[in-house]
Structures are given as structure tokens and as C-alpha cells.
Nucleic acid binder design. Structure first.
Lengths: 203, 203
DNA sequence: CAGCTAACTGGACCGAGGTCCGTTTAGTAA
DNA sequence: TTACTAAACGGACCTCGGTCCAGTTAGCTG
């Protein structure tokens, strides 16, 4: 079924020179450490370059932008997440009905946001969110589920709309400014999804 | 009823010195002209300062940030919009049922986005969106309507969630990258709202 | 091993948003 | 008119994301 949507987030370039690979490793390692120590918001790209013992040009050659670097640091988690969605256990993976899978998808994403909101914020800044391959995967997944639950619906649009409710900026605002607990956001998501989709008739 | 929510977007500071007022006017005028000529994305703050014949410090003293300047330029339109919401004709203003008012609200906001998307994008960049008073007004309005339609619901959270579907970044993505026509977004909004709220029982 | 080239490197550089602070000026009180 | 002060002014300056390009090097080929 939807196995076809497995897009590797990071393609290890087969024709990558040894020094390039080494520097990529150094950069990722240094970035991970700095983000962990100070929080992603307090680390500049110069900091990363210096900590990795690498010039700024190299840093940007490897990871075209700040948002991209954040995404790369998160790629492991994202890969696991995609794996769980595509081949994992229900209700996240195949086997459950579309509505339940959607609810589980959102709740899992909210957990990820809770754990890495500063990094995700950095990755989703500005239009970067929509450009990132991970967003494409999420959108496709949600679109397919929506289509499965209700084929007549405008699933494409609704997918992007629902995903907007799981954006990092909104999340941070709701949690930190409005002070809403995580569970409340999950309940809200569940309610939103259940109301937006009809109950499956034939099951 | 909800007349109480009228928050003036721009409070003309009563104790504002004459030179300050003059410069504020110059800046707004120059900004409006430049944005109009080149599009908001191609105008730097230095450009605005120079065109207004004012130092950069003055520009930032008057309007603390780029996002704020954009908001100020939009404030006229926003004031009209708030007026229409609070005291205008139904279905946007009071008189229609909450669901219809919500649908109308979103459609009107989508029209505004369509007309001024570059300015709104500039105004909503990053966390600025949530900080702006206009967002507060919109949120309050939507919250009250939701509460009216279904008092048991978590209206606070749902309001922010629904507003996320009307964000400028999402709008630009849907229109320009995904190529969706405006009417499609309006239909999607209507569908989303109607499904999220129960039909009024007593009318 | 020598020669070649495509890829990589790194730091100088740029533009833009935003801050700082010494100077100027509007408004007021004597 | 003069003296005084709080406010406004403006441009030098800072930080930071991102680009450029001259020099270097990995890895292949003969």
C-alpha cells in the first residue's frame, strides 16, 4: 500500500570524498553537542563551525542552511518515526482504521515536538518547513489516510491544514505562552480529527 | 455582547512630541509607497529609513521591528476588519449563527491574505504572529464564537488551531507552491468549520 | 610515481535586522 | 528670554545567516 512513500531523509552520497564525509561527521557531532548543551536557539552557525574545527564555507556547503542542519540532526529520530508509520505496529502503523492512525500520528508528532521543540523550531523557521522532505512525507501519509477515510474529501488541502495544527511555532506558543499542558493538545488533536472524519461504515 | 473586545491596534500616544509624530507619518508613508512599488519582500529597513529621510535608530524606535512596521502599515485594513466583525452586517458581524460567522470570518481573512500576502507574511514572520495584538483580537473573536456554538468544547485551543489554518505562511505555500485557487481554500475552510461544530439545535 | 581534475576547504566578505549612545531639540517653567 | 529636562534623533556598530572564490587535496589514470 503506502510502502511506496518511503523517502530517505538523508541520502548518503555514494560519491562522497573521504574528507567530506569526515567533516560531515564532525559537524553533526559538534552540532548535536552544542544544541544539547545550550539549546538550539543559543548556538550560531559560527559556533558550530568553530566547534567542528571547520570553516564556515564547509558548513554551508554540507548543509545548505541553518534549518537544514537542524533537520539533519533530527534525521535519526525522523527515520524511526517514518519507519513506525509505514511498517510499525498499529495504531501508528498499518492495521488500524484511518481515523485511529491519524490520531496516533498527531500524538506521536506532539511527543516529538515536546522532546525537541527548539530543534524543530529551528528546522521549521520560515518557509523551510514546507520545503523539507520530512514535511512531504508527513503530508503524503496524512493525505492517504484522509483519502482512505473519506474519498470524496479534498484530502490534499485538509492534510496541510491539519498539519498546520502540529507546527512547531504554534506548539511553542501554546505550551510556553498559553501554558497548555501536552495532554490538552493531544486531546484537542483527537477531537479535531474525529470530528473532521466520518465514522467508518464498513469495518 | 462582545463589544468589549475592541482593542485599538494603534494607540495614538497622547504625549507624543510633534517631531515624533511627523517622523512616524513620514515613515509610514514611505513604507507604504516602497512596499507598493517593489513588494514588501524587496524592501529593507534601511531603504525605508532612507526614503523617509530618517535615521535607522528612529525607525526602530517608532516600530520596534520589521514585523511591527508591516503590521502598522496594515493597521487601517485591520481596523476596518475588526469593525466589520464587531459591528458590521451579518454573516461577518453579529446576527448570524456562530458557525456562519466563523465561516465568514475565515473567508474574509483569506481575502485579506490574497490581497496583501507579502505584507502579512512580513508581519507574521516567526513568533511575531502570536505577539501581535491583531492576533489576540482574532483569537478572542473565534474563541467566543466557538464557545457560543458549543460551550463544552475547549474553545481556547480550538481557536488557535483553526487560526493556524489561516496563517500567511501556509497560505503562500498552498497558493504558490501547491497552486491551489483561492476558492478551494475557502471551501476547505467552510468544510473544516462546519464539521468541527455541531449544527445549532435551537435557532 | 607523476599528472590531472573535480571536489572540497575556509575565511574574507556581504546584506540585513537590530542595538547603543552621544548629540539635538521640543516643550515647559521661571 | 533663558535655563532645564525628558524625549527624540541618527548613524556607527554589532551579530548572524549566507555567499564567494582562490587555494588545496583526494582519488583516478597512464
Amino acid at each position: 500500500m503506502d510502502d511506496a512513500l518511503q523517502l530517505p531523509v538523508i541520502e548518503s552520497d555514494s560519491a562522497e570524498r573521504a574528507d567530506a564525509a569526515r567533516n560531515r561527521g564532525r559537524i553533526l557531532c559538534a552540532a548535536r553537542r552544542l544544541f544539547d548543551e545550550r539549546g538550539a536557539g543559543c548556538v550560531s552557525m559560527d559556533d558550530v563551525a568553530e566547534a567542528a574545527g571547520v570553516g564556515k564555507g564547509t558548513l554551508f556547503r554540507r548543509f545548505g542552511s541553518r534549518a537544514s542542519l537542524a533537520a539533519a540532526v533530527l534525521s535519526e529520530r525522523e527515520r524511526d518515526f517514518q519507519e513506525a508509520i509505514i511498517r510499525g505496529e498499529p495504531p501508528l502503523g498499518p492495521g488500524a482504521c484511518a481515523r485511529e492512525r491519524l490520531v496516533a500520528f498527531g500524538e506521536a508528532l506532539l511527543d516529538t515536538l515536546d522532546a525537541h521543540c527548539d530543534l524543530l523550531l529551528m528546522a521549521e523557521t520560515g518557509p523551510a518547513r514546507f520545503a523539507h522532505p520530512a514535511y512531504g512525507v508527513h503530508r503524503l501519509h496524512v493525505t492517504l489516510l484522509l483519502h482512505e477515510a473519506e474519498p470524496e474529501r479534498d484530502a490534499e488541502l485538509l492534510a496541510d491544514t491539519l498539519l498546520a495544527a502540529l507546527g512547531a511555532e504554534l506548539f511553542v506558543y501554546l505550551r510556553e505562552v498559553r501554558g497548555m499542558p501536552l495532554q490538552r493538545l493531544k486531546d484537542g488533536w483527537r477531537e479535531l480529527v474525529l470530528r473532521s472524519l466520518p465514522v467508518a461504515e464498513l469495518r
